Simulated scan of single mutants.
Amino acid sequence: MPNAYSRARKAHDNNQEGIRLQKLLAQAGFGSRRKCEQMITDGRVEVDGELVTELGTRVDPTHQQIRVDGSRVRISNKHITLALNKPRKVLSAMDDPKGRYTLRDIVGDKYERIFHMGRLDYDSEGLILMTNDGELSQHVMHPKYEVEKTYIATLEGRISGTVCRRLVTTGVQLDDGWIKLDRCAIIDATHDTTIVKVVLHSGKNRIVRRIFGSIGFPVKRLVRTQIGPIKLGDLKSGSYRVLSQTEVRSLSKEVGL
């Protein structure tokens, strides 16, 4: 039974099928052809689990699995992933029978079968990821991979550093069980308002609002600024951008793809 290397070598010898490995890596955003050639000769590239170090090897990315440093190379002209800055009073859905403003009103019908990965509640704002890559979507939303989300929350009242630390070390008990923050830091405070940066991997509904509400500090404003390695950055409210191949690759690696 031929291994992956011999299959790839046969394609190379025939010079009739597939794409040169270094060209594919360059198209996937790994750098220039020369840089990708160096990655191959350095032994960083696998095809179907077998190390490939010979330049000119041809591969078929639709039927073969290519990995660089253990991370899968994902190539598809059909797949698109977006970062969208959801404003308040926008429903995290593609349609709404009540006629409320939805994500579709922002992205339109330009991308086929695109859907949001996770949600933000109606009154919250910030980063939402959208894709038409079903495998990526399932992994990002699956609790198994514990993708971290970062929020900036404006709270009613002045919370102390001690309380913030307790939410990380001990957590709080909600109706559906105990929950802890991964990290919590006070950014700014006045006599009646505190701005905190919180990180957690739970995707439960309204979880940040519920956590702080349960200890007497209702959330006045909530902005999600990061999901895994993807940052909101300076993306304007109500707008979106297409993730680069490097960003998609980083997100895919985060969720085990």
Rank of each mutant, 00 (worst) to 15 (best):
K149D: 03
A93D: 12
G18N: 06
K89I: 00
G70E: 12
E254P: 01
V219I: 04
L21A: 06
R100F: 10
L91I: 15
D95V: 15
T225D: 03
I211L: 04
P61L: 10
I195N: 05
Y151H: 08
Q245F: 15
R74W: 10
G213D: 03
L55P: 12
D176I: 03
R104E: 12
G228T: 09
D42P: 01
P143Y: 09
V59F: 06
K110T: 13
S239C: 14
Q27K: 09
R72Y: 04
K110S: 07
V242T: 15
G108K: 03
H201W: 12
T154D: 00
A153W: 00
E125C: 13
P61Q: 14
A8Q: 03
D109L: 02
K197R: 10
D69H: 11
S250T: 15
G171A: 10
D121F: 05
I230D: 02
T190E: 08
L243D: 13
E17F: 04
N132M: 12
Q16L: 11
R241M: 14
P97E: 12
L251V: 12
Y145E: 01
Y111L: 02
K253S: 13
C36S: 07
D234V: 11
L155F: 03
T154Y: 06
R9K: 14
D96L: 05
D95G: 05
L82F: 08
G29T: 07
H139Q: 15
E46R: 13
Q138F: 13
R100S: 11
L24K: 04
K110P: 01
G171I: 14
V59T: 05
K144L: 13
H201V: 09
D96N: 08
A83R: 08
V45L: 12
S237K: 15
I152S: 04
S92E: 10
I211H: 00
I159R: 01
T246A: 15
D121S: 08
P218S: 01
F212C: 05
E37Y: 09
H116D: 00
G256R: 10
I106V: 14
G134Y: 11
T162E: 15
C184V: 10
L257K: 07
P143K: 06
L24I: 12
I80C: 09
M141H: 01
E125M: 13
L55C: 07
K253V: 06
S160G: 07
E125W: 11
A26W: 04
L243P: 14
D175A: 10
S71C: 08
C184E: 02
G177I: 02
T193N: 01
R44A: 08
I80M: 00
D182Y: 06
D175H: 02
D133I: 08
S214Q: 03
M94T: 11
R104F: 13
R72H: 08
G238V: 14
K236W: 06
V196G: 04
L251E: 11
S244K: 10
F115S: 05
A26V: 08
D42E: 15
T193I: 10
D182R: 12
G233W: 05
K10V: 09
N132A: 09
D95N: 13
Q38Y: 01
C184I: 11
M141K: 05
K204N: 12
R119V: 02
E247L: 14
L222W: 06
D123R: 02
R74T: 05
H79A: 05
L257E: 05
A4Q: 06
L91G: 02
G31Q: 07
V73R: 00
D48I: 07
R44G: 05
R206D: 03
H79K: 03
I66V: 14
L120Q: 00
Y240P: 14
T225E: 10
L82Q: 06
E50C: 12
